[in-house]
Lab assay of single mutants.
Amino acid sequence: MAAGGDHGSPDSYRSPLASRYASPEMCFVFSDRYKFRTWRQLWLWLAEAEQTLGLPITDEQIQEMKSNLENIDFKMAAEEEKRLRHDVMAHVHTFGHCCPKAAGIIHLGATSCYVGDNTDLIILRNALDLLLPKLARVISRLADFAKERASLPTLGFTHFQPAQLTTVGKRCCLWIQDLCMDLQNLKRVRDDLRFRGVKGTTGTQASFLQLFEGDDHKVEQLDKMVTEKAGFKRAFIITGQTYTRKVDIEVLSVLASLGASVHKICTDIRLLANLKEMEEPFEKQQIGSSAMPYKRNPMRSERCCSLARHLMTLVMDPLQTASVQWFERTLDDSANRRICLAEAFLTADTILNTLQNISEGLVVYPKVIERRIRQELPFMATENIIMAMVKAGGSRQDCHEKIRVLSQQAASVVKQEGGDNDLIERIQVDAYFSPIHSQLDHLLDPSSFTGRASQQVQRFLEEEVYPLLKPYESVMKVKAELCL
């Protein structure tokens, strides 16, 4: 049975990233139509530049190519590739079939990587351009969430054990800070992308030097003109047959890092959902379990974690691919890159769409948070109580021993009897502590235990987050809708 299948058929496997999760716009960027249309555009740009620099290419040939950029006979191309065992030459023939007058000058002087690699770089750039505003929107939604809850005390956790208090907004800023680093890295790697350009079979530009009869300047002009037509500021000066596969490492490393950030955020949300302090959106008709109707599973956060793990592992592909590119190139890269580049971007696209949807509907339960604080705060307040007693004339050592005994009794009630923490009640009825009984409410005010959390939130948002989001103001209103 021949390899390949009808990918629109229910009898043929289709990647869930495309069929179930990723956005239509990201799927289109990695589609065959987008790819092969870009090949034709690159052939047109090459012909236009070659004509401008004096090669015998007519206006009629150029116009014929322009008129057929979208006229792609995919069936013919597939048949040609089956016959020739070469995808680029299959599309040269297919393009030439609908451009008979231009057929002889299509791909003039070029090698397969002229269309293959340059198209990949265009796709990487455009895919990054799709991700950047999506990530900015996630940051914006979380920034709104953090600002609104900047002063809401909550129990902090280290080692997932109760620690000092923080605020809900401050905790959210930990998430935002990681995503801001990801946004900066995505922008950097996007701006650092260079075009492969017009380089020939081993990167020496020998074929173009021959076409222009040894004119170095025209060869350099050709490279520059096509690079500018493709919208790049610069091209690699040095290439082998391909652009260095280190570029793929750079791009997928940034995406993998984004995956790590999203995994951490969504894990926190899942843990908070278990504590009943916070939940992701839950639709009115949504079913959490087929057997347990009360369940409210954090399905979206779980999906993000599941896909983020996949995204983090994909960076190993370009690392290994770059390491086995012998001399000017081997074909070890080809099949692998067809999979890992598309999957990385479709996965990143999915987790950003999902995280935006989550961040637009996060639900906080202040009463649950308050109750958990009441359970733990008495123990945390013991040092403040000791200091207040010393100020009232008591002995630190005597007070410490009193607190120690009462704390152990209260802990026994919590752990052995399943009761509430009654340390404060014990202190309130103990005559030894009568000098500070009137101060206990103040000493137990949760806001006095959150330090500068709310001020940190305000400063972080104003100095770091809002300036970073400013270039994306025009796209901030787009909502994230999930079908599944």
Rank of each mutant, 00 (worst) to 15 (best):
residue 5 G to F: 08
residue 6 D to K: 14
residue 7 H to I: 01
residue 9 S to Y: 10
residue 12 S to W: 12
residue 13 Y to K: 11
residue 14 R to Y: 15
residue 14 R to G: 00
residue 19 S to V: 13
residue 20 R to L: 04
residue 24 P to K: 13
residue 25 E to D: 13
residue 26 M to T: 06
residue 33 R to G: 05
residue 41 Q to P: 13
residue 42 L to T: 13
residue 44 L to M: 11
residue 45 W to E: 11
residue 49 A to E: 03
residue 52 T to Y: 12
residue 54 G to T: 08
residue 55 L to K: 10
residue 61 Q to A: 02
residue 61 Q to H: 01
residue 67 S to Q: 00
residue 69 L to P: 01
residue 78 A to K: 11
residue 82 K to C: 07
residue 83 R to A: 09
residue 86 H to Q: 06
residue 88 V to W: 02
residue 91 H to G: 03
residue 92 V to E: 12
residue 100 P to V: 08
residue 100 P to R: 02
residue 102 A to Y: 03
residue 106 I to K: 00
residue 108 L to V: 02
residue 110 A to M: 10
residue 112 S to C: 01
residue 113 C to A: 02
residue 119 T to I: 04
residue 122 I to C: 05
residue 125 R to V: 03
residue 127 A to D: 00
residue 132 L to T: 08
residue 133 P to L: 09
residue 136 A to I: 05
residue 138 V to M: 01
residue 138 V to E: 06
residue 143 A to E: 06
residue 144 D to G: 11
residue 145 F to N: 05
residue 145 F to P: 02
residue 148 E to F: 09
residue 151 S to E: 07
residue 161 Q to F: 00
residue 162 P to C: 03
residue 164 Q to G: 03
residue 164 Q to R: 08
residue 171 R to I: 01
residue 172 C to W: 04
residue 175 W to P: 01
residue 178 D to F: 03
residue 181 M to F: 10
residue 186 L to I: 10
residue 192 D to A: 14
residue 193 L to I: 12
residue 195 F to D: 01
residue 205 Q to E: 13
residue 205 Q to G: 04
residue 209 L to V: 03
residue 210 Q to S: 05
residue 210 Q to Y: 03
residue 211 L to N: 15
residue 211 L to T: 05
residue 213 E to S: 04
residue 216 D to M: 02
residue 216 D to C: 11
residue 225 M to L: 04
residue 227 T to D: 02
residue 227 T to I: 06
residue 229 K to W: 00
residue 229 K to G: 05
residue 229 K to P: 00
residue 230 A to P: 07
residue 235 A to D: 02
residue 238 I to M: 07
residue 239 T to I: 08
residue 245 R to F: 00
residue 248 D to Q: 11
residue 248 D to Y: 15
residue 250 E to D: 03
residue 252 L to P: 15
residue 254 V to W: 15
residue 256 A to V: 14
residue 257 S to A: 13
residue 263 H to V: 06
residue 265 I to G: 10
residue 267 T to C: 01
residue 273 A to V: 10
residue 274 N to V: 06
residue 275 L to R: 04
residue 280 E to F: 01
residue 291 A to G: 09
residue 291 A to N: 12
residue 294 Y to W: 07
residue 297 N to H: 12
residue 297 N to V: 00
residue 300 R to D: 01
residue 305 C to I: 03
residue 305 C to P: 07
residue 306 S to I: 08
residue 307 L to N: 12
residue 307 L to C: 14
residue 308 A to K: 06
residue 308 A to C: 09
residue 309 R to T: 10
residue 316 M to R: 09
residue 317 D to M: 09
residue 318 P to S: 07
residue 318 P to V: 01
residue 320 Q to I: 00
residue 322 A to C: 02
residue 324 V to C: 14
residue 326 W to G: 04
residue 326 W to N: 09
residue 327 F to M: 09
residue 331 L to W: 00
residue 338 R to K: 13
residue 339 I to L: 06
residue 341 L to G: 12
residue 341 L to I: 09
residue 344 A to T: 01
residue 347 T to A: 08
residue 347 T to F: 15
residue 348 A to D: 02
residue 349 D to L: 05
residue 351 I to D: 08
residue 358 I to C: 03
residue 360 E to F: 02
residue 367 K to C: 10
residue 372 R to L: 14
residue 374 R to K: 02
residue 374 R to T: 14
residue 375 Q to A: 15
residue 382 T to Q: 13
residue 385 I to D: 15
residue 389 M to Q: 11
residue 390 V to W: 15
residue 391 K to G: 06
residue 392 A to R: 06
residue 395 S to V: 02
residue 396 R to V: 04
residue 396 R to H: 05
residue 397 Q to G: 05
residue 398 D to G: 07
residue 399 C to Q: 05
residue 400 H to W: 04
residue 402 K to A: 15
residue 412 S to W: 00
residue 421 N to G: 14
residue 425 E to C: 11
residue 426 R to S: 15
residue 432 Y to P: 02
residue 434 S to T: 13
residue 436 I to P: 09
residue 437 H to M: 04
residue 445 D to T: 13
residue 452 R to K: 08
residue 456 Q to S: 13
residue 460 F to I: 13
residue 461 L to G: 10
residue 463 E to T: 11
residue 464 E to M: 08
residue 466 Y to I: 14
residue 475 V to F: 08
residue 477 K to L: 13
residue 481 E to W: 09
residue 481 E to P: 14
residue 482 L to Y: 13
residue 483 C to S: 13
